[in-house]
Design a protein around this nucleic acid. Sequence first.
DNA 1: GCCAACGTTGGC
DNA 2: GCCAACGTTGGC
Length: 160
Amino acid sequence: MSRYWLFKSDPATFGLEDLERSPGRTTCWDGVRNYQARNFLRDDVRVGDGVLFYHSQSRPPAVVGTAEVVRAGYPDPTQFDRRDPGHDPGSPPGDPRWYAVDIRLRKRLARPAELPELRGTPGLEEMLLLRKGSRLSIQPVTAGEWRIVLRLGGVRGGLG
DNA sequence: GCCAACGTTGGC
DNA sequence: GCCAACGTTGGC
């Protein structure tokens, strides 16, 4: 059974449009440097899982699309790249510290599901994203939350 | 193991 | 640009 996730991205760095333009509308979700998020990527995110694509640092912040996991956790190549901002000289190649997954765009939402709107929506009271001080960039989402967010985004029926 | 200092995230 | 919340670092 598939799970659901929310991935945050600053559109100034990598936004939905960048994903739309990526070959096969697929990208490597690398650069995650937080241990809790790493654990999700390494241990829990699986092929076929659904992803809410979220624009942070945006006005207003919003879920703007859905994606699907097409490759489960594997060592993040950028940690071994000297020139990459995420280069981690302390990560042993034999036991990599950081992980990435691949995701493929499913669809852009008909309209963004904006953060202030999410805050007022019944059924989302427990959503991790809405918790004060929640900075986690990879978050689990329940099936109910997934369905509600997609409905707000104008996605009718199905998996989005 | 404690905790102050520091850096980052991200909403506003 | 501001600042609250959080994570990490490093001295002790």
